[in-house]
Computed example of a mutant assay.
Amino acid sequence: MAVGWSRDGAVQDQIDATVEEAVERARSRLPAGESLTHCEECEAEIPEARRKAVPGVHLCVRCQSEREKKQRPASGFNRRGSKDSQLK
């Protein structure tokens, strides 16, 4: 049983909050609305199967892949400041 400044379960609450924030951030980046029939960037036709699978899609698979490669990956971050702070 740990004693100190935080109550029991505080570390798990921090982990849960971090996961919830990451999920919300990911959901906010999902496309919404009506899908386009042609890609915004290259004008290639977007297959109907993709339009149905990803509502609100605006890019073809190739352009979407290229865009994702350019984006920085989200770094692991927890509220205590260090990835391994909870492993000690």
Score class of each variant (00 low, 15 high):
residue 1 M to T: 15
residue 2 A to S: 15
residue 3 V to D: 14
residue 3 V to T: 05
residue 4 G to E: 05
residue 6 S to M: 12
residue 8 D to L: 13
residue 8 D to Q: 13
residue 9 G to Q: 08
residue 12 Q to R: 14
residue 15 I to V: 12
residue 16 D to H: 07
residue 16 D to A: 13
residue 16 D to T: 13
residue 16 D to L: 06
residue 17 A to W: 13
residue 17 A to T: 12
residue 18 T to H: 00
residue 18 T to M: 06
residue 19 V to Q: 14
residue 19 V to D: 07
residue 19 V to K: 09
residue 20 E to F: 04
residue 20 E to Q: 15
residue 21 E to Q: 15
residue 21 E to T: 04
residue 26 A to F: 12
residue 26 A to N: 09
residue 27 R to T: 05
residue 29 R to C: 05
residue 29 R to W: 04
residue 30 L to A: 11
residue 31 P to R: 03
residue 31 P to T: 01
residue 32 A to I: 01
residue 33 G to H: 06
residue 35 S to A: 04
residue 35 S to P: 01
residue 37 T to S: 14
residue 39 C to F: 02
residue 40 E to C: 06
residue 41 E to D: 09
residue 41 E to N: 15
residue 42 C to M: 12
residue 43 E to V: 01
residue 44 A to S: 15
residue 47 P to T: 14
residue 47 P to R: 15
residue 48 E to A: 02
residue 48 E to F: 00
residue 48 E to H: 05
residue 52 K to L: 00
residue 54 V to T: 02
residue 55 P to Y: 07
residue 55 P to D: 04
residue 56 G to W: 05
residue 57 V to E: 02
residue 58 H to D: 07
residue 60 C to R: 13
residue 60 C to E: 04
residue 61 V to W: 07
residue 62 R to A: 08
residue 64 Q to A: 13
residue 65 S to N: 08
residue 67 R to M: 09
residue 68 E to C: 01
residue 69 K to H: 09
residue 69 K to W: 10
residue 69 K to G: 00
residue 72 R to T: 08
residue 73 P to V: 14
residue 75 S to N: 02
residue 75 S to P: 00
residue 76 G to H: 08
residue 77 F to D: 09
residue 78 N to S: 11
residue 79 R to A: 12
residue 81 G to W: 00
residue 81 G to T: 08
residue 82 S to R: 06
residue 84 D to T: 04
residue 85 S to T: 11
residue 85 S to V: 14
residue 87 L to D: 12
residue 87 L to H: 11
residue 88 K to L: 13
residue 88 K to M: 10
